[in-house]
Write a protein that binds this DNA or RNA. Sequence first.
DNA 1: CGGAGTCAGATTGCATGCAAATGCATCCCC
DNA 2: GGGGATGCATTTGCATGCAATCTGACTCCG
Lengths: 241, 241
Amino acid sequence: MQSDSDMAPAETASVVAPEGFRSLRGRSATHVAERLRDMILGGDLPAGRRISERMLTEGLGVTRTPLREAFKILETEGLLHIVPNRGAQVAELSPADVDMAMELLVGLESVAAEPACARATAAQFAAVEALHGQMVACQRDGDLMGYFRINQDIHQNIVDCAHNPALSRVYRAESARVRLYRFAGNRVRQRWSCAVMEHEQILQALKQRQGPLLRELLRAHHLNGWRVTRLVLGNEIRPDR
Amino acid sequence: MQSDSDMAPAETASVVAPEGFRSLRGRSATHVAERLRDMILGGDLPAGRRISERMLTEGLGVTRTPLREAFKILETEGLLHIVPNRGAQVAELSPADVDMAMELLVGLESVAAEPACARATAAQFAAVEALHGQMVACQRDGDLMGYFRINQDIHQNIVDCAHNPALSRVYRAESARVRLYRFAGNRVRQRWSCAVMEHEQILQALKQRQGPLLRELLRAHHLNGWRVTRLVLGNEIRPDR
DNA sequence: CGGAGTCAGATTGCATGCAAATGCATCCCC
DNA sequence: GGGGATGCATTTGCATGCAATCTGACTCCG
């Protein structure tokens, strides 16, 4: 009869989902991977730290199966290192590894420069300019974290202007891998104003669709930044705070 | 007594491992991912083909847990596409996707060119030359599969000359992703001799450590090859067999 | 005949159980 | 006292079980 089959299909009798809750079924591992990635990129899990499954299953409220799937994802992304029978640890990059990753990142931006100039839309110009404005505000307010985050965002946006999904994906992944190692360099306040000026030139070149110029500006900008970062990492100069 | 404790420690009573067998404990997922990757890159699993877990657990002799971990690895590599509650299917690339991936691959080789010239060792020169010799032999014998495989191998080796692990890793992954789509282009025999000549110039430039020249030669070589491939994929010319 | 409903079998997502491996404290023997 | 052996608790790797979801064939009504 009607009353039998008419039960509200949205929720079962056993557990009532809190409102706004969307089931994560089929997305647990992805979701856990995102959480873990945030923890690593945010510095909550420092490089080299060993990660026990139990710690995370309790912390994130999932069971071991999706957690272990997330480990595989992050290992493939290069953020975790898994030793059989001994669990996972946050990947640790040697200075040489970071150097090589930076070489790759500079290269990827060079690759992006000309397609970006050829294909960027007006909306993308506007988005990059808006971010630039926010970054200047962070510089003015001395907001280190915001400055750094938006800086990365601007570079990702410029790469995205090339409308090449594969390029964007690879740039994002490699950028994440070295994120924490680059953070140090942005702590030299002297570099900030210089970087802002370089960004302004970069924006100009992008908006005027001058591909080769953009490529050279990006390369120079990166090499400048990386030089400072390397000095900080090598303790040759002291960060401002 | 002696006879009690003297049992051969290499094998337990329950299951006798076949000789040469090393336990895969802790490596199942990785191993399965390798097998699956080979199946996809070898064309045994065509693009778009849906993959059921049962098919593979039976085919590969593993249970679902490591198989599902392997799925996550291959999804992160871009070789599989997983739809929640509906399983995995081999990733399918649109012509635009392949175009963009090729743009990235050409870019990565350009990035590799100068460091490769700067850092390649004599052993690496020799390795690339040996591969080139093998490729010429394949061309002579009309061995399509061998020619194609060694061709890819040569390009990977050139990138590896840059001694940049991150670059090598990314190049390998992206190269794999479009492997099957590029295969078609190598079926035009007319292109083979042309490609061999281009490779010879490329080798020259590498050995003489002429970075900028190498970069231009690689770019031109790729664009030539990709132009032919695109024609074949678009059915504008017919492959030789 | 067409389309919504529905129902069983198959498939997937995740929790859990068990065995192998590890780590650590203790014990032993020299 | 020191350098292993040994046993126990913990952790990891994988197999399996159960519930949610999908699929597709069939039914039934218009």
